[in-house]
């Protein structure tokens, strides 16, 4: 391989083979490692890096052209009030559902920690939204919360002051709730594992020192599990930010970034690949930027314990 740099002496083949053997002997370990990493690197470059590169290049090309450079795709999207609304909407949905997931997860994991009857069943229940396709979840939610679904039937029959069905589907709060249904397990599971790894004797020490249950919870338990909650909420945020199938069928007129990208290449003829690529780049950059900030915030002191 690399040994062939010298000017080839006579009997080149034999010397080269010797060189190869020597090279192999000295670098065996490195070569094996490189060989082991080869499939992963090939996959990474072929299926992620090169596509991303192509997207970057395409986002700077004029629409439908293979040559030339322009910033028009970015400026058009960012200057458009609709475009800015799409970005804002994506953040509202992602942050709203993340916050709600945290609000739901903390009490839930506090209850399930007490090993109540059937707690294993509930634990399994929490995992269900993780393993089913988002599409199916969205479908069921649309059916349940729709104007003919059980939710509205219940309201109409048992709540005397409700006269007409309450609109949940295709509204922004409905969509946020659908996101919570689909993505809260990420937060919940991490919160639960953080709670379970918590040493009970710390709480007992607090209680012995005269703190009541609320104070123990507020000043001891919550600060200690905050890193776990934050780590889980990052996962929820990432899933909600990149959500595609759910807003695609349950979003109605609310189209977050992922759906907007898909619309660019599915509705207009010919497909607007450059515009889609520009939006995709904006989306990717926003997510990376937000995650970096978030991680920094978490490291800085999102909790007394700090992440390991």
């Amino acid at each position: 391989m690399g040994a062939g740099n010298d000017p080839p002496p006579p009997f080149a083949a034999a010397v080269q083979r010797d060189g190869m053997t020597a090279f192999w002997r000295t670098h065996q370990s490195t070569l094996v490692t490189v060989f082991l990493l080869l499939p992963a690197l090939a996959g990474f470059f072929g299926l992620f890096f090169y596509p991303m590169l192509l997207t970057v290049i395409l986002s700077f090309r004029p629409e439908g052209h293979e040559v030339g450079w322009t910033l028009e795709n970015y400026t058009r999207f960012l200057a458009d009030p609709d475009g800015r609304w799409v970005i804002l909407l994506t953040f509202i949905l992602a942050l709203g559902s993340t916050a709600l997931s945290v609000l739901l997860s903390v009490p839930l994991s506090l209850i399930l920690r007490e090993k109540v009857r059937g707690h294993q069943f509930y634990r399994l229940m929490i995992l269900v939204p993780l393993v089913i396709p988002g599409l199916i979840g969205a479908l069921g939610l649309l059916l349940f919360w729709g104007s003919r679904g059980w939710f509205n039937l219940f309201l109409l029959q048992f709540m005397p002051f409700v006269q007409r069905p309450v609109a949940v589907n295709y509204t922004i709060h409905g969509l946020t709730m659908f996101y919570v249904w689909l993505y809260f397990p990420y937060t919940c599971v991490t919160t639960m594992s953080a709670l379970e790894s918590l040493d009970r004797s710390i709480e007992e020490a607090g209680a012995v020192s005269g703190a009541n249950r609320w104070q123990v919870l507020r000043y001891i338990v919550l600060p200690l599990i905050t890193p776990g909650i934050l780590a889980g909420s990052v996962l929820t945020f990432m899933a909600a930010f990149g959500a595609f199938s759910v807003p695609l069928i349950a979003g109605g007129n609310y189209r977050p970034l992922a759906v907007e990208i898909y619309k660019q290449i599915s509705i207009p003829i010919p497909a607007r690949w450059s515009a889609a690529s520009a939006i995709a780049m904006i989306m990717g950059l926003l997510q990376v930027a937000f995650l970096t900030l978030y991680m920094r915030f978490v490291r800085r002191g999102g909790g007394t314990g700090g992440p390991r």
């Binding site: 990493l37 992963a40 690197l41 990474f44 299926l47 992620f48 090169y50 596509p51 991303m52 590169l53 192509l54 997207t55 395409l58 990432m238 930010f241 990149g242 595609f244 970034l257 992922a258 990208i261 898909y262 290449i265 690949w273 889609a276 690529s277 995709a280 780049m281 989306m283 990717g284 997510q287 990376v288 995650l291």
Partner: peptide, 24 residues
Amino acid sequence: VLMAIILLPRMIPPITYALGVAKI
């Protein structure tokens, strides 16, 4: 670092590289 780079696809929304994959 290498591991973080190889695991990078988990950090980015799939639709962003799906575009490039489809194009290729």
